[in-house]
Amino acid sequence: MEKGHGHGNSYGMVIDLDKCTGCGTCMVACAAENNLAVRPDESDKQRSITWMRLYKVTNGKEFPHTEVCYFPRPCMQCDHHTPCVSVCPATATKMDYHTGIVSQIYTRCIGCRYCIAACPYHARTFNWWDAYFPKGKGLERYLSPEVSPRMRGVVEKCTFCHHRLMRAKNNAYAEERRELEEGEYITACTEACPAQAITFGDLKNPEHKVSELVKSRYAFRLLEKLGTEPKVYYLSTKDWVRRMADNYLPGEFKPIAKVKLG
C-alpha cells in the first residue's frame, strides 16, 4: 500500500464500527491523555473541545427496526493536499511527510479559524475560553506533562498522540533501534478501546495489521469522494452504515451485500 509522499511512515487508523459500542472511552482517554480542557457546560457540541468525537447515527427505520451506530471521529490526518494545512496563513499546522501526521503548533496559531472552515470533518476545535482551572479546585493536578495545555484563542485537534510517537522513538533509540515495532506506538484511543475496535499502525508497512485491514471489502473512509485521502479508515459490514460515510447520488451507492439480520 504505497501512500503519501517520500519515504518514512504513514501512520493510520482503522476503526471497526461493528465492534465499536459507542461507549466513549476513546473520547475520555483522548481527553485525559491530551489535557483537553473541560468546561462546566460541554453540552454545546459546537463549542465543546474534542479531538476524538463520537457521532451517533441511526438507520431511521421505525420501531422496532431502528438501529444505532457510532462513528468515532479523530482527525483524519488527510494525506492529499491536507485541507487545513494548505490554508493556514501562519504555518501553524503542518503535515509531516515522514509520519503522515498533521501537527498543530498552538504557540504559533493566531486563531483565524480558516482551518476550521476548511475541514469538513469538524476535526478542529477552537479555544473559545481560557482553559477552565478554577482556583482551589486542584483540577490541574491530573494534567500530563507530555502535552501542553492550550491557551485561549487557538485551534487544536487530534495529533495521533504525537508525543507517544516521540516516547516510543526515544525508547527505541535508547535500545539503538531506528525502526519501531508494530504496536510500540499507538494512540491513547487505540489503547483504551475496550472492544479493540481501533487498530493503529503504519499504512506503508505491509507487515502491519492496518495495511491488511484497509484492503477489506468492508473498509471505507469518510467523505472519500472529496479526495482528502484520510488516513483513518472504517470497517462496517452494514450497508446503511457505509452509506452514511459519504454523499451519494441516487443509484450511486453500491451495497456489498444485502444485510440480513436475524
Binding site: 454545546d44 459546537q46 463549542r47 479559524r113 477552537f126 475560553w129 481560557d130
Partner: peptide, 12 residues
C-alpha cells in the same frame, strides 16, 4: 475572548 460571540466550531 471570543466566547462573547455566537461563533462556534461550525460557524468559524
Amino acid at each position: 475572548g471570543l466566547n462573547q460571540t455566537n461563533m462556534n466550531d461550525y460557524f468559524a
